[in-house]
Computed example of a mutant assay.
Amino acid sequence: MSFPVIAGDVGGTNSRFRLIGPDGAALGETLTLKNAAYPSIIEALTAAYPADVIRAAQTLVIAVACPVDEPPFHLTNAPWVIDPAAVKAALGLSQVHVMNDFMAQGLACASLPLDTMQQIGGHPREEAAPRVVVGPGTGLGVAQLIRACGKWIVIPGEGGHLDLGPRTEREFALWPHLEMRGCRLEVEMAVSGQGLENLYRGLRRLDRHPDREEAVSAAQVTERAHSGEALAVEAVTLFTTILARFCGDLALLTLAHGGVYLAGGMTAHLIDLVRGPAFRQAFEDKPPFSGIMAEIPLYLMPGGTPALDGIAAYAADPQAFEVERAIHVTR
């Protein structure tokens, strides 16, 4: 691909863009835009960069929060529809590469130095062993990484849409009060921004709170928890407990001795709970495999924009990864 490249991380709420050079280094600052302020990614890009910068770049590589199969791509938790051919034509680009957002997080997991991450328990990682990346934000993203033939194979999926069941007596009482998709409760409906809102609303319904149907955002729930409101504290605690259990489920899936890596905006907002001993305890609570779980390390991905770092690593050395089938390229 030609350089410079415009790299983009297009989430459900925000889009982040960065110009990168042939060595993967950033050319200028990362720009963050609110999706709701623009009708489409075309307007967002033209707001982010002057026309001469876009013409000079010629190549756009974006990670999007939805499955990447056949275009156009419909964001799962936002109204944008991304048609690579229309973007290419409107902006005068020579090529547009589109990958799933957790493909980009997986690329970051494979390429970022270990010392940029914070380990939470477990043994040192086995460098060639399977890895898992999990990230709650507007939605819940998941990717697996497998090392084969000297390359990292990144397998993005839709693990956030797996079914979620209760474990404790309180959870069994709570489940009927939670919003579901169809006839089932997905993990994302508890472990994401909308998931935290769902848990808090459900707890207020369960306890017959007089304002139980009041719309309360995830940010407000977090603020109320920090101020000591009991139900908000319970919602945030349950959120992190379910996240830890889910990470443990995914670790068991591949015996991820290469580590489970936590990304996503919600993780950053609740970082003190994620670092606490209860999180690790819930992660390991998988009898009869608790001994194996105690060995598997958890890592906090670095703050900032790891997805853009992953895109930069791919752009600088695409041959280091086996990802061609998972990236849609329009030329």
Results as ranks from 00 to 15, higher is better:
Arg208Leu: 14
Glu188Gln: 14
Val187Asp: 03
Leu199Met: 09
Glu223Met: 11
Leu196Gln: 03
Leu196Thr: 04
His226Ser: 11
Leu199Ala: 10
Val221Cys: 03
Asn198Lys: 11
Glu188Ser: 11
Ala225Asp: 11
Leu199Gln: 05
Ala218Thr: 00
Leu206Tyr: 03
Arg205Ser: 12
Tyr200Ile: 03
Glu223Asn: 05
Gly195Thr: 08
Val216Ile: 14
Val187Trp: 06
Asp207Met: 02
Gly228Leu: 01
Val187Lys: 01
Leu196Lys: 04
Val187Gln: 07
Gly193Trp: 02
Glu197Pro: 01
Glu229Pro: 02
Gln220Asn: 08
Gly228Ser: 06
Ala219Glu: 13
Ala219Thr: 11
Gly193Phe: 04
Arg208Ile: 03
Ala225Asn: 07
Ala218Val: 04
Glu188Tyr: 04
Ala218Asn: 07
Ser217His: 03
Ala225Ile: 08
Arg212Cys: 15
Arg212Ala: 15
Gly202Pro: 03
Glu223Phe: 01
Gly202Val: 10
Val216Gly: 05
Arg205Phe: 13
Arg201Asp: 09
Pro210Leu: 10
Asp207Gly: 02
Arg224Cys: 01
Val191Asn: 05
Asp207Asn: 10
Leu203Ala: 14
Arg224Ala: 15
Glu188Leu: 08
Gln194Ser: 13
Thr222Arg: 01
Ala219Gln: 07
Ala219Phe: 03
Glu213Phe: 11
Ala230Met: 13
Arg205Asp: 12
Arg212Pro: 05
Leu203Thr: 02
His226Asp: 09
Asp207Leu: 10
Arg212Asp: 13
Glu229His: 06
Leu206Thr: 07
Ser217Val: 09
Glu229Asn: 10
Gly195Ile: 14
Ser227Leu: 10
Ser227Asn: 04
Glu229Val: 10
Glu223Gln: 14
Glu188Ala: 14
His226Phe: 01
Glu197Leu: 06
Thr222Tyr: 00
Val216Ser: 03
Asp207Ala: 10
Gly202Leu: 02
Val191Asp: 05
Val221Lys: 00
